[in-house]
Simulated assay, not measured.
Amino acid sequence: MLPSDDPVRRSRGRPVEDSLLEAAWLYYVEEWNQSRIADRLAVSRATIVNYLQQAREQGYVELRVDLAVFNRQRLSVALRERFGLAAALVVPGQSASLSSVALAAARYCPDFVEPGDVLGVSWGETIYEMAERMLPRVIADLTVVQMVGSMPSPYIFTSEGCSTNVALKLSGRVMNLYAPAALSSPEAAAILRDEPLIRQHFTLLETMRKAIFAVGSMDAESHVVRSGIATLEDVEDYARNGAVGVLCGRFIDASGTHVEGALDDRMIGVTPDRLAGLAAGMLVASGPDRAPAMRGALAAGYVTHLVTDEPTAEAVLELAD
């Protein structure tokens, strides 16, 4: 235990990490204010703010979400009752915020996973940011499996990046899918699916116990359009056949059923029905434009744990009536 009341000692000449650890201890354990800690360490208050930020980012201090408390929130109760969820974490606030939802999922995710899990991870901006903002934690014997093939992307995030980052943060093994999400022809996709490495990957996906995934919208800004998997004309064609959104790169209708179309025979990745019957499935999503896809995933029973925000939760519940 670090001393708390000895004379002021200057931090000059001490390793920075020592000062960082002392600042974190005094602030989070002994509940000193930042100004008092700055005086104690003979540094500026801005330096203390930086120390505390580093302590969180490096995993020396972990802030955890008490899901039992958030489950009592009005919208959480409504979502859990309507869709039979085990948990619904609804981020407070009047504006939809992907960043806030990703941060909430990052704080909750390590408690969602258990030792020995085989965890499937999809792709998307929310999933990528969640992984980036997770605090390190060791989950014993964890295997993280990429559920959707790789794709050229105008974004910083990639499918393999999402699964790799989750595995790194939780000290798990990562099994990435070494294949494109969509090939040029059904024949090329069939040949690739028959490759031993790809067949081995899908065999592993059959052992998946839990999954973390997002959903996409049906407009020109949809990730499947901007990544080049589908054209806007493709999306419109799927919409005419009842699709309301995208899940794991596939189109689903309002009941969560996979809507098959021209693209499916060219794709490499799980189909939505693989998410049925898992021990747990976490949907992380923000934005009323994703509400129809979210509602479909919820109605199909793919979701046991939901992380979203107030405006998006309201939009989902309005569709559920």
Score class of each variant (00 low, 15 high):
residue 161 G to R: 00
residue 102 A to C: 10
residue 220 A to R: 13
residue 190 A to Y: 09
residue 300 A to K: 02
residue 274 R to I: 05
residue 97 S to K: 01
residue 21 L to P: 04
residue 123 W to V: 13
residue 45 R to F: 01
residue 266 R to S: 10
residue 84 G to Q: 05
residue 86 A to E: 15
residue 276 A to T: 12
residue 204 L to C: 11
residue 163 S to I: 00
residue 295 R to I: 03
residue 84 G to P: 13
residue 158 T to S: 15
residue 72 R to W: 02
residue 140 A to L: 11
residue 295 R to Y: 13
residue 170 L to V: 07
residue 198 I to H: 03
residue 193 R to G: 12
residue 282 M to V: 05
residue 57 E to Y: 02
residue 60 Y to P: 03
residue 284 V to R: 04
residue 282 M to Q: 03
residue 290 R to F: 06
residue 221 E to T: 14
residue 79 L to Y: 09
residue 259 V to I: 13
residue 315 A to H: 05
residue 116 G to P: 10
residue 124 G to A: 07
residue 157 F to E: 09
residue 283 L to P: 12
residue 84 G to W: 02
residue 115 P to T: 06
residue 108 Y to R: 09
residue 131 A to V: 07
residue 165 N to E: 14
residue 72 R to G: 10
residue 156 I to E: 13
residue 31 E to A: 11
residue 162 C to P: 05
residue 3 P to M: 06
residue 149 G to E: 03
residue 250 R to E: 08
residue 210 K to D: 11
residue 311 P to Y: 01
residue 226 R to S: 03
residue 74 R to D: 15
residue 238 Y to C: 12
residue 308 T to Y: 06
residue 147 M to C: 13
residue 225 V to N: 01
residue 297 A to R: 03
residue 194 D to S: 15
residue 229 I to A: 01
residue 76 S to E: 08
residue 73 Q to G: 14
residue 233 E to A: 14
residue 107 R to Q: 14
residue 1 M to L: 09
residue 187 E to A: 14
residue 237 D to M: 08
residue 25 W to E: 14
residue 224 V to Y: 00
residue 130 M to T: 15
residue 56 R to M: 08
residue 73 Q to L: 13
residue 105 A to Y: 06
residue 178 Y to T: 12
residue 248 C to N: 04
residue 148 V to T: 12
residue 123 W to A: 15
residue 320 A to R: 01
residue 161 G to I: 00
residue 4 S to P: 08
residue 126 T to W: 02
residue 98 L to T: 14
residue 270 V to A: 07
residue 163 S to P: 06
residue 187 E to W: 02
residue 23 A to K: 00
residue 129 E to D: 15
residue 83 F to I: 08
residue 111 D to S: 15
residue 106 A to D: 12
residue 93 G to E: 06
residue 183 L to S: 09
residue 40 R to C: 03
residue 174 V to A: 13
residue 92 P to I: 05
residue 147 M to R: 00
residue 113 V to H: 02
residue 223 H to Q: 12
residue 240 R to Y: 05
residue 232 L to R: 11
residue 152 P to K: 08
residue 245 G to R: 05
residue 214 A to D: 13
residue 296 G to V: 05
residue 169 K to D: 10
residue 6 D to H: 13
residue 237 D to C: 09
residue 288 P to K: 11
residue 253 D to I: 09
residue 6 D to V: 13
residue 170 L to K: 03
residue 53 Q to I: 11
residue 203 T to V: 10
residue 206 E to R: 12
residue 318 E to C: 08
residue 191 I to C: 10
residue 107 R to E: 10
residue 104 A to N: 08
